[in-house]
Simulated scan of single mutants.
Amino acid sequence: MIDGDHLRLEFMTSSEVALAIASGIRTIVIPCGAVEQHGPHLPLSVDADHAEHLGVLVAKGVGGALLAPTIRVGCSSHHLAFPGTISLRDDTFEMICRDYCTSLARHGFERILIFSAHVGNFPPLAAMLPRLRSAMPASCHVSAFTDARAWLETWRDAVAEAGGEPVKVGGHADIAETSVMLDLHPERVRTRNYEAGRLGLLSQGDLELMWRDGLSAVSANGILGDPDGSSATIGRHCIERIAALLVAGLSHGDPV
């Protein structure tokens, strides 16, 4: 059995889920990802793969929790200039999250924790959270992690602690994300295709330009940061630090 499979709702039988709920397991984690371009060296599955792995760590970290199937496609309209990207509209993403939550609440889960490995999902998650909560019965509370700055700062700290150059963290297909994939799925990384993208964290003006005109308006190759110097060791440290950030944030019961 792959580590964490015993926590995955989709690999359980209905009677096993009922037994788990009856035994007191009332918390469930919903990971969200994206299927979008990640430069010439990474597959479109990066955020979905990352979310899938983090979900197990978060469920274990909060304790007494099961793991819902990852919502693999997210809000990626700012990447649509790059072939292969699939994007949900914000309201479609919200309806999927709402249907997940109402289904899970109906079965007796009382605490639903949502996070995304795709930072582009953070704004719609933050916007929908009050509506998700109002759609739940009084016995069920929904929390979501939506602090993009904390995520990027944690990546920078993790890269530095693991011996990498934090200046190469930009938030997309950079040294952090590339290292994560070198740890999770090294066979999917095209190391010969590394190239630097837009360096430095985006200003508020850059972010507004990106949301309005797409990522290609601020980075021609679709990369924010630089993958050079990536390693599985850096990736493992990034994963551990982000998992700890999510567990701490979601354990508060409110969005961070």
Rank of each mutant, 00 (worst) to 15 (best):
H78Q: 06
F109N: 00
S134P: 00
T146A: 13
S77L: 05
H53V: 14
W211A: 09
S203C: 03
R111V: 06
E165S: 14
T178Q: 06
A22I: 01
R188S: 15
I223K: 01
P123R: 01
A51Y: 03
G55D: 06
A127K: 14
R89K: 12
S134A: 15
P255Q: 11
L54F: 05
L57T: 01
I21T: 08
C101I: 09
H172C: 11
P43R: 06
V189Q: 11
V189E: 10
D91Q: 04
H53D: 06
R198T: 13
G39W: 01
F115P: 04
V256W: 14
T13K: 09
L66C: 13
G39S: 02
I21H: 06
V17A: 04
I223P: 02
E161V: 08
T85R: 07
S179C: 06
L132F: 10
K60Q: 13
D254T: 15
T70P: 02
L152H: 07
W155F: 15
G55V: 07
R133D: 10
P31E: 04
A173Q: 07
N193W: 00
P255D: 08
G205T: 07
V159C: 05
D213A: 13
E208L: 07
G214R: 04
H107L: 15
V35R: 01
I96A: 12
H118F: 13
A126F: 09
A148G: 14
D157Q: 12
L67F: 04
S251A: 12
G4P: 11
A173M: 08
G171N: 14
I2K: 11
I223V: 15
P137S: 04
G163S: 12
L42H: 11
G170T: 03
R133T: 13
R149M: 12
T85W: 11
R212T: 15
L104K: 11
K168G: 02
G39V: 03
Q37H: 15
W151T: 02
